[in-house]
Amino acid sequence: MLNSLALTKKLIRTKYPSFEYAVFSDTPVAPLKKPLRECKLALLTTGGLHLKTDTPFDTKFLDGDCSYRVLPGAVGREDIMVTHESYDHRFINEDLNCVFPIDRMREYVKEGKIGSLSDEHYSFMGHIFAAGPLLENSRTAGRRLKESGVDIAFLTPT
């Protein structure tokens, strides 16, 4: 009997025959260097969120769309749409925060639990079969966030 990893791989390979999991043996660790109450936080998701005015993700590209979209710090639910075919949108349509917890984070800033929120949050697609470009694009997002003074990031893969 196949375990869940092997079963998932078998299912993916029906669409993408050369699929292999990305595997790493090391773990990069950036230690937190200041109290949480002084930290600037950014959200990152693979929920396929983007501004209604932005170019949608390409759901037809077989490798998976490894690009990202920037969501501005002041973004509201009414500004956002989802282009992602691999999860049920009923949940995010009912409550943005179950994928992109921006209201919760704004509460934590008001409460003084964290210092501030980033002026930019990042959204990627999930369901990526060729992960190479995704790693490079996440490095780019990381560099941009670092340059803008972000200390911590909360990631919500979907």
Partner: peptide, 11 residues
């Protein structure tokens, strides 16, 4: 991984 490599602590 990419974000952590830039020096940002992630969860």
């Amino acid at each position: 991984r990419g974000v952590e490599e830039a020096g940002i602590s992630t969860v």
